[in-house]
Amino acid sequence: MRELGVPLERDLDGLDWRDESLGARIRVALWLRDEVGVGGTFTKQQVRAAVSGTEQVDRRMRDLRPAGWEIRNYRDKPSLRPDELFLERIGRPVWEKEHRAAGLRQISARTRRQVYERDGHMCRRCGVAAAEEYPDEPGSHARLTLGHVRPHRSGGAAGPEDLLTECARCNETVRHLTGVQMDREQVWDRIEQLPGKDRKNLLAWMMHDAREQTPTERVWGMYRQLPAELREQLKRDLYDLLRR
C-alpha cells in the first residue's frame, strides 16, 4: 500500500479521495486507485478508516464490481488472510461523469417498499426480522437490505420480481457461495428428520419459492422494522390490551 500524499503521474484529474463532497463510491474507487493500486492488498477496516463518516462503505465498494472492478477475497484467492482483499483490476473510472452510473441499477423507493412489504420485512433466506438479534450471534442485530434473485453482474434486472429481502449477513454470504457449502444429501437428511406436517409446509414453501408467513409472523416483521421507541409503545399497548 502506498504512503499517503505520494503524487502519482496518473492523478491528472485533480480528484482526491479525501474530498467529502464526492460520493462514497467515487471516494472508495479513488482510494483504491491512488492508495492501493492493481496488485495491492488492503482490508475493509482500512477502507472504513479512509472513507469515514459514510454509511455502508462496504456496499459502495461492492458496487464497483459490476463496473468491471475485480476485488478478490480469501475465498477466491487462498493466499489472502480472512481480513484481506486484493485489487486485481481497476474497472471503469466511476469518478468521471460519463461513468458515474456504470454498473448501478437504480431501485426506486416504491419498489424497495413493495419488496419489503411483500416479504413481511423479514429475510427470505434465514427468516430474521429487521433489527432482530441473531440467535447464533448474541449482540448482533439484523439489518435488512435487498438482494437479487439473479446476481447484478450476471445481468439481472431490478424489478420487484427480481429482488428479495435479505439481511446484510445473508446478502454477504450468498455473494461468496461456491456450491460446496451444503450438498443435496445434507439437506435431504434434515428434510427426512422433519415431522410429516413440517414436510408438507416445506413443500408448499418450495412450490411458491417463498416461506408462507402466518398473520402473526407478518405483524412481527412489520413490528421489528419500527424504531425502538415505537416498538416499546406497541409492547405496552398490547400488554394493556391483554390485561383487560
Rank of each mutant, 00 (worst) to 15 (best):
A102S: 00
N73F: 00
L238V: 14
V36P: 00
T54P: 08
A158L: 02
M182Q: 14
A50I: 01
N171T: 02
R199D: 08
R124P: 12
P227M: 03
R224E: 01
R18K: 09
L226T: 01
Q56S: 12
E70I: 15
E96I: 08
L80I: 06
P93D: 06
S140T: 15
V180D: 09
Y116D: 04
A204C: 08
L87T: 03
L15R: 07
P7S: 05
Q181Y: 11
R89A: 06
G155R: 07
P151M: 08
D240M: 07
G155E: 10
P215D: 03
L32E: 02
E185M: 12
C126A: 01
R125S: 15
L144Q: 12
P93Y: 02
P93W: 00
V28L: 08
R143P: 13
E166Q: 14
Y134G: 05
M182G: 14
V149P: 09
G14V: 00
A131L: 09
D63K: 00
I90H: 10
L202M: 10
R125N: 15
L104H: 01
P135S: 06
G53D: 03
C167L: 07
A157Y: 10
G156Y: 05
G120Y: 12
R243C: 04
R175L: 09
P135V: 01
Q225P: 02
L202D: 04
D209E: 11
D240Q: 05
V6Q: 02
W17P: 06
E166L: 14
T41L: 10
V219A: 14
R25E: 00
I90A: 14
Q225K: 10
D76F: 05
E133C: 13
N73V: 04
D136P: 07
Q186K: 04
R169L: 14
R150C: 13
R25Y: 02
D136L: 11
M206Q: 07
M122G: 13
R110V: 02
R243N: 12
R112L: 09
V187T: 00
Q46L: 11
G127Y: 15
D83L: 13
A131I: 04
G23L: 08
L146C: 02
R110T: 02
R110I: 06
E133M: 14
L64G: 05
I191N: 02
H152A: 15
Q181K: 06
G155L: 10
I107N: 07
A24S: 11
G53K: 05
W17G: 08
M1S: 08
A101F: 11
V6Y: 01
A228C: 02
L64W: 01
A102C: 08
